[in-house]
Every structure is written in structure tokens, then in C-alpha cells.
Nucleic acid binder design. Structure first.
Lengths: 247, 247
DNA sequence: GAGTGGTCTAGACCACTCC
DNA sequence: GAGTGGTCTAGACCACTCT
């Protein structure tokens, strides 16, 4: 019944053991394709395929010309609704600071007016293509890009406020909206697993081929009005999401 | 092949267009590897690789010896907390009936006592390996297996109740727990994207190599007490999850 | 028996990195 | 320049399905 594993998977399993056992530590370089091929008695194309498996599993990263390295894989825990509680942003805390995980964090922000994508226009109740404020961010944790996020807000809510600045101030954009009497009262998040677009794969340093991202689209509502749409693309291996809710 | 996309991805893109344009309809058989190779002027191993890409994207399914076919890919929408509202199960509705999606549904149930896995024992507050009631289910939608789920409950809450039967009765196990004064009051769901285990890949009819599942672990609490742990494994391409919550 | 997907070999060339 | 990952060829054999 239990037929034999194909050679490439057998090799992948051996290498995976070395990684999980810590024999190949985080950041360590794996043997080269030619060395793996020689060591396990297979063609180099099979060694390549074995590494494809590990890359898909998010265990290793390859840099052409430089080698293949063991990746970091402790997941960041992202807990809702805690991270988005009013009490937090009213006290000036940032949303991401609620997420667990390694220490070093960086955020790059790019701000500008963009034509509203369809999924944004529909939610905000404006014409598709009409200008909206876009806040594109890139989250880096310990030198690893883990998330891309773009917030879209109606320009009439952002003009002349700190939302238009890279540093939106204490409590972030929700605190700024609250100052206008539009504090978000509830959120809806929509989660989809999919293959990354080529540019997303590049930005997140993922393999173009086998890897996956989680796309989270969040709609922030102040009463009946949708005041923000946030499209996030997460490295699927870097996160663990939790949601708590009443029955 | 300097400068541009590699050949296998070029071929994959062409085939993807044929599928998304509807030229290759749902359920249609793709050309064979040898025919693709001939038609696009590449080696058969490159045709194989192109199909690997489409399989990873969840667009096609291959059956060795039989061919490669276009997959169905309308996502089922699974909305929380709506689907788990007390009002629903108290009225006798089933949780899954809240999820949108195609019509034909089947559920296979296997019930039995099993030793508690660690993540279950910890939550239920019992010794690891102590017996718990397991309800393993398999959800089939329009001939496609979309989800595997296993619920674990303390045996003292299930003995002699309909929870021990494949059909747990109107409102499901939560209605049965409510009858004992242990109606779940809140839930926590933990979501992780990962590669399927070999047996999960087989059961969900996924490629062993590139594909991904969403693992959702739900903890049902009645007051402070955890009364159920439910480990679900979803075909990542078959679902879209939504969560609504207050700020 | 013809056709199919899955696996594999033993080479090859390219662009790239590191020294 | 040596080494690396990435891509590709042109074959091959196997187990399987379909008729």
C-alpha cells in the first residue's frame, strides 16, 4: 500500500529533518544543488526539486548565485479584535504593537492620491477611479518583509489632517478619524489565501512559484459609514491569525 | 531564453488565459503534456512544470493516467460570527448552512473515542492521551472535498447524548451542550496557512507539492470552561473567510 | 494497447555572487 | 574565475486509466 516516496521528496524530507532538528540553524547555508545531488545520489534536477519543496513550505530562501539559506519561521500572532480595540488607539497605541513576535520592526510608508480601485469605490460609496488617499505600507520584522498593506480613505476625511503624513500621530489614523467624530465602531475582515502576484512575491521575498499569501481586506465602519478600506498581503508562513467573538 | 519570462511560466500564462476566458470551461480536459509540449515548442518536462504552476494556483487538477482538468473555483463564503450565533443553533439550524456556495453538500461523519492530542488536552484541561470524543467530518460540495474537521469534546459531556451519534440532532452539538447548561458563550478561532500533510492532500484531492490549506482551530467556551476544540483543514482555494467585530 | 501524468537522468547554458 | 541557483533538453521508464 504505502508505496515508496519519490526521490525528490525523500531528499526534501532528509533536509527538512536537518532544519527542524536545528542541525542546520536559522540563517545557515544549505549544501549546494550539486553537493546535494552527489550526497544523495540523484541528478541535480532532483536536488532542485527537493529545494522547491522546502521553499514552498517556507523553510528556506534561495538567492541565485549566492546559495540557499534556512529561513526564520516563528510566526507573528495577530489577535483580533484586541489589536483594534478603541481603548488601544484612544490611548495612542499603534495597531501593530499588539502583535506578538520578534523585536526589530520597520515600517515604510508611501502616501498619495490614487484612483479608487473597484473594491474600494464600492465600499466607500464613491465613483470608481475617483481619487482617494492611499497609505501604502511595508512591514519589516527582523530584516524580513512580512506584510504589505494599503489603506484607502476618502480624501475629504484626510485633507489637512495628519493622515496625510507618513507618521499619522499617536493612535494612528483611527485616532485621527475619531477626532472628526468618525471613530470606527466596527470592522469586517475578509481573508483569502492565494498565490502572490509577481510584484508581491518580489516585495515579500517569496518564491514566485509555490508560495502563498493571505490577503486580508478590512472595512472600517463608523456607524453605517465605511471610512477606510485596508488591503493587506501577508506572508502566509509569517503569521498566525486569531479571532475571538461571542456566540 | 534570455530577457523574458521563463518558458514554463509563459506556457502556464497562456493556459491560464484559456481557462479564465472560459475557452477551457470548468471540468474541461486540458491538452496532454505531450500535446502542450508540441504545441508550444518545449520539452515535455517544461509542459509538466507549467501544469505544476496551474495546479499550485488551484486552477486545475490532474488524475494520473486520466488527464488534467479545469477545476471549479467559486469560493464558499464563511462568515463569522454570524454562522455561530446562538440564535441560529437554538433554532435548530446547522452551522454550515450559513456558508454560501454551491448547492450539493455531503458530510461524512466518523465518531469514536481517541487519545487527546496535546493541543486538545491543554485547552480542555485534561491529561494528554486521556480519551476524548472525536467527531471527524468530511465536507463535500459538488463532488469536491473542501474541508476536513475534527471536533474533540470531553467524554463526560457527550456520554449518552446525541453528540455520540453521527446525526447530532437539530442545532448540532452546540444545541446539545446548551441542553446541559453549557451553551457556548464565545469562540476563539486560530488561523494558519500551511502545506497539507500527505493524508490531508489525498483527502482534499490537492497536489502534494505546491498546494496550501488553511488550518482553523476553534475553541468553544461556555463561560470560563472550554467545552470543545475543533480542528478544521480547509482547501485554501475553496474558501473565503470573513470576521466582523466591534472596535 | 494506446494514452496519460509522474518521475528521473545526464548532461547543458545562463546570469548572478563572492572573492 | 569558481561556484551558485534557475532553466531547459531529449530522451526514458513506470503505474495508471480508458476503451
Amino acid at each position: 500500500m504505502a508505496g515508496e516516496q519519490p526521490a525528490y521528496r525523500r531528499v526534501a524530507d532528509r533536509l527538512r529533518e536537518l532544519i527542524l532538528s536545528g542541525e542546520l540553524a536559522e540563517g545557515a547555508q544549505l549544501p549546494s544543488l550539486r553537493e546535494i545531488a552527489a550526497r544523495y545520489g540523484v541528478a541535480t534536477s532532483i536536488a532542485t526539486r527537493a529545494l522547491d519543496v522546502l521553499r514552498t513550505d517556507g523553510l528556506v530562501v534561495s538567492r541565485p548565485g549566492a546559495g540557499t539559506y534556512v529561513r526564520r519561521f516563528e510566526r507573528i500572532v495577530r489577535s483580533s479584535p484586541g489589536r483594534l480595540a478603541q481603548a488601544r488607539w484612544r490611548q495612542g497605541a499603534s495597531v501593530q504593537d499588539h502583535d506578538t513576535g520578534p523585536r526589530t520592526r520597520t515600517v515604510d510608508v508611501v502616501i498619495g492620491d490614487v484612483p479608487a480601485p473597484d473594491f474600494v469605490a464600492g465600499a466607500l460609496g464613491i465613483a470608481p477611479g475617483a481619487p482617494v488617499l492611499s497609505r501604502a505600507r511595508r512591514f519589516v520584522v527582523e530584516e524580513r518583509v512580512v506584510q504589505l498593506a494599503t489603506s484607502y480613505l476618502p480624501t475629504e476625511l484626510t485633507r489637512g489632517t495628519r493622515i496625510e503624513h507618513t507618521d499619522a500621530g499617536a493612535g494612528g489614523i483611527y485616532a485621527r478619524l475619531a477626532e472628526q467624530g468618525l471613530a470606527p465602531s466596527h470592522f469586517t475582515e475578509r481573508i483569502v489565501g492565494r498565490s502572490p502576484l509577481p510584484e508581491e512575491a518580489a516585495a515579500l521575498e517569496l518564491a514566485v512559484d509555490g508560495s502563498r499569501v493571505l490577503e486580508i481586506t478590512r472595512y472600517a465602519h463608523a456607524g453605517d459609514r465605511c471610512v477606510e478600506v485596508n488591503r493587506m498581503v501577508l506572508d502566509s508562513d509569517a503569521y498566525e491569525l486569531t479571532y475571538s467573538f461571542p456566540a
